[in-house]
């Protein structure tokens, strides 16, 4: 099963490396990892997407906790949470497709971030599912390049 794990770590050189290295050393699956500062500049939040059965996920959580630089480890999949991913994508543009592309951007509540004679760059934000669907839908128009941020997620407030 897929799990989203949120990890608060010391905002210090090497923290990301320790986490990534632990995943590879122990053969855990690492689907995506994203990191950024929190409201406290000394602490960063990592969002990790991984897969495994309960026994593996429990080991992942414990091994993360065991790292000295990790402050708090939460398996968000076991609680109410929101998850988002950002997609940036450059598509081929032509007179014939232009119209449909604009309509689809609307459908996905996306935004145009740049437009040129023969290409258009758009952003889409949403759950990883929505991002996957949008990529499938836009594919026939010709994707020149795309980048995904990886998932960021957070516990829902009270």
């Amino acid at each position: 099963m897929k799990h989203i794990i949120s990890v608060l770590v010391e905002n210090r050189f090497g923290s990301l490396n320790r986490v990534a290295a632990m995943f590879s050393a122990r053969g855990f699956n690492l689907e995506s990892i994203s990191i950024g500062e929190t409201e406290d500049p000394e602490i960063s939040r990592m969002t990790i997407v991984t897969r495994g059965d309960d026994q593996i996920i429990n080991q992942v959580l414990k091994q993360l906790n065991r790292l000295i630089d990790t402050i708090k480890v939460t398996d968000l999949s076991r609680q109410p949470h929101v998850e988002r991913e950002l997609l940036l994508m450059t598509l081929k543009l032509s007179k014939t497709t232009q119209h449909e592309i604009f309509e689809l951007i609307d459908v996905f509540k996306g935004k145009v971030v740049d437009i040129k004679q023969k290409s258009i760059t758009i952003e889409v934000i949403g759950s990883p599912d929505k991002i996957n669907t949008s990529i499938d839908i836009f594919k026939p128009y010709g994707i020149k390049e795309l980048a995904r941020s990886g998932v960021v997620a957070i516990h829902r407030g009270e």
Partner: peptide, 8 residues
Amino acid sequence: IDPTNVDK
């Protein structure tokens, strides 16, 4: 003492 040893 090390939780990672348990159920590993």
